[in-house]
Every structure is written in structure tokens, then in C-alpha cells.
């Protein structure tokens, strides 16, 4: 991905994030995720159905990196099985940790492949997706 494309993708997902706003539906699992070292704060809702992620919602205030990566993650993970989703999340984390990862698997999350250069931003780039991961692991 070239820099201009990455920036455009991030800004688009920051300004118009996917699935922002909570449903407060009891069939969803729910979790709050915040960064103690900064001011990002998300509430996340997730619904599993027939072994697949049926829906993910979120709300809260956070920086452009946190918000956009949450939005992109939601777009990628909905419809995936538990195993597929956890595999994508693991590959995304590997990218941020500068370990080998499958580029094709993480789709638009490749936009964050330079974030490792800003260590303070790694937490922003993973806040939402690690919340989703927690909820997937909680689901049966």
C-alpha cells in the first residue's frame, strides 16, 4: 500500500467508522477497553451466531489510529469463524511486533504496517481488535 492510500483509508475509517453506536442488546457480549497510557476508550459489543461473528459494534472516544483500526477490523472480522478471526488478529499483532505475518490475510489492516516505528501508537492500533479478541474468546 502506498502512503497516500494508507492515509486516505485511515482518515475515511476515522471520520466515518463502521458500526459506531451500541445496540445494548442482551444477545451481544460486551466489554470496555481503554488505554491507561493515553485517552482512548471504547465500549465494544460482539454477537456470535452458528460459530461465526454475526456483528460487532463499538462506541467511545479515541484517536484516529485507534478508531480507524477498530472500524477496519470490524469490516474484516464480521462473517469469520472464531478460528479465522483469531488467526487474522494474530497475524495483525505479528505485523506490529515486526514478526512474520500473512499480508493477504489481514487485508486493509496492512495500512498500519509502519506503526511499529511509533511504539506509543501500537496500543492505539490494537486497542479495538484486542477487545474483539477478548470477546471472541469469551464466546462459546
Amino acid at each position: 500500500m502506498d502512503s497516500n492510500f494508507k492515509r486516505a483509508l485511515i482518515i475515511e475509517n476515522y471520520e466515518k467508522p463502521l458500526n459506531k453506536g451500541l445496540l445494548n442488546d442482551s444477545t451481544y457480549l460486551r466489554e470496555n477497553k481503554n488505554n491507561s497510557s493515553c485517552i482512548d476508550n471504547f465500549d465494544i459489543e460482539l454477537k456470535m451466531e452458528d460459530g461465526k461473528i454475526k456483528d460487532i459494534r463499538f462506541d467511545g472516544e479515541a484517536c484516529a489510529i485507534a478508531t480507524s483500526s477498530m472500524s477496519i477490523s470490524i469490516g474484516i472480522l464480521i462473517g469469520k469463524t472464531k478460528e479465522e478471526a483469531l488467526n487474522i488478529i494474530e497475524n495483525y499483532q505479528n505485523m506490529l511486533e515486526e514478526k512474520p505475518y500473512d499480508k493477504d490475510l489481514i487485508e486493509d489492516l496492512n495500512a498500519y504496517d509502519d506503526i511499529y516505528k511509533q511504539p506509543a501508537r501500537k496500543k492505539c492500533a490494537t486497542l479495538g481488535i484486542l477487545g474483539i479478541k477478548d470477546l471472541i474468546e469469551k464466546s462459546k
Binding site: S3, I11, Y112, R121
Partner: peptide, 8 residues
């Protein structure tokens, strides 16, 4: 500012 804050 927003674009340039991203660091990507």
C-alpha cells in the same frame, strides 16, 4: 494536521 499525525 490529522493526516500528518498518523505517521504512515
Amino acid at each position: 494536521i490529522l493526516e500528518e499525525s498518523l505517521g504512515v
